[in-house]
Design a protein around this nucleic acid. Sequence first.
DNA 1: CAAAGATTTAACCACTTGGTTGAAAAAAAT
DNA 2: ATTTTTTTCAACCAAGTGGTTAAATCTTTG
Lengths: 208, 208
Amino acid sequence: MNKRDGLQPLPDSTEQKIFDAAHEIFTQKGMDGTKMQEIADLAGINKALLHYYYRTKEKLFEAVAKAVIDKAVPVIRQLFEGEQPLQEKIRYFIDFYISLISRNPFIPLFIISEINKHPDRFFEAMFPQDMPRPEIFFKQVQIEIAERRIRPVSPKHLMVNIISLCVFPFIGKPMMRLVLGMGTGEMRVFMEERKAEVTSFVLAALRP
Amino acid sequence: MNKRDGLQPLPDSTEQKIFDAAHEIFTQKGMDGTKMQEIADLAGINKALLHYYYRTKEKLFEAVAKAVIDKAVPVIRQLFEGEQPLQEKIRYFIDFYISLISRNPFIPLFIISEINKHPDRFFEAMFPQDMPRPEIFFKQVQIEIAERRIRPVSPKHLMVNIISLCVFPFIGKPMMRLVLGMGTGEMRVFMEERKAEVTSFVLAALRP
DNA sequence: CAAAGATTTAACCACTTGGTTGAAAAAAAT
DNA sequence: ATTTTTTTCAACCAAGTGGTTAAATCTTTG
């Protein structure tokens, strides 16, 4: 039996190879769409060894889900709870978030799909992460409005707008590629452009 | 054997009941996550009769996919190819599109998930719909910019922005509900608010 | 009524899939 | 060197699922 149960797998270990393979396939195909055999193949081992390290599919999936959440949550928390000036925070968030998703383009759809199919299982995986609280962001927006530095907008909707503009293009990428007739390379350029484009779009919408 | 193969099922017919059940479950759980037995149960019939009307799961799924596409495409086409003045078209699209998705909240995630998992199968189902062509929209934006009626923006990004703002909130609904702490009723109000909020947001961002 | 079609029932098949087992071999640790 | 751990191999099991079949019954329609 594996000695380091529950801990972070060591790099280059078999456990790590399994985890990496599972991460890649789970995030692309989701829990239901993934077969244990696929993971074993990608990891270059056999099924028996898979269960030797991670007893069940659920446990392996949970490990991956936790890792994904742990990467995504801090950035959101920064937007919600950060103390920098609003405009600066928005600039920073858009740039950073689009970069993050560019590096892990399957994560948004993974999170959303899994929440939709098994909310309970997923939210369990989120513990003990406490949800980011958006109150600070809301208050900042209200102050900016009161001091006439931005146009009056609903803080909640502004928040949803910013996140939508960053995340959705990645989720809808295959559809967009078809409609806009873009190849993989053009797509990467397009996503890179979006950092500036979304930033100026949001800030322009906020002008008093 | 069923006499009216390939045609639109008659209302109140068993075929229609099957189709409706399949539509509901497929759009919520996707092809892989749906069991034929579930569909039979919801339709109030048995599995044998299911296969009596739709020979295979694939065929039934394809019928549903086609119907979904046929409902979504025309609205997009309107935005891309309509000849009304740009601002008016944007207003109209946002209002109409959010209403449409409110009535069928599972459709966006359904389309996106299926495209991601089986692009080939899905695009096959899209025939013979020809893709909406965005050239007219692009030209309109360029003209408005040239005549200084809107701020200079990338037409492609503007298009993606508008669609993102309409669609994403529905896809990310479960997550948003959690973060913003909203119940089902509040959520419906929020989506209704978005029509005005998104419209003014986009138009504000376009001010010269 | 008689024929054709619609529907049920229940058993059944083939296949996939998550998971197990037990023995043997390879590698690592003592 | 020997004990422990890791890894392979191959067969296997149980459950679930898509799909079939054949007979029986109900419904519609000529």
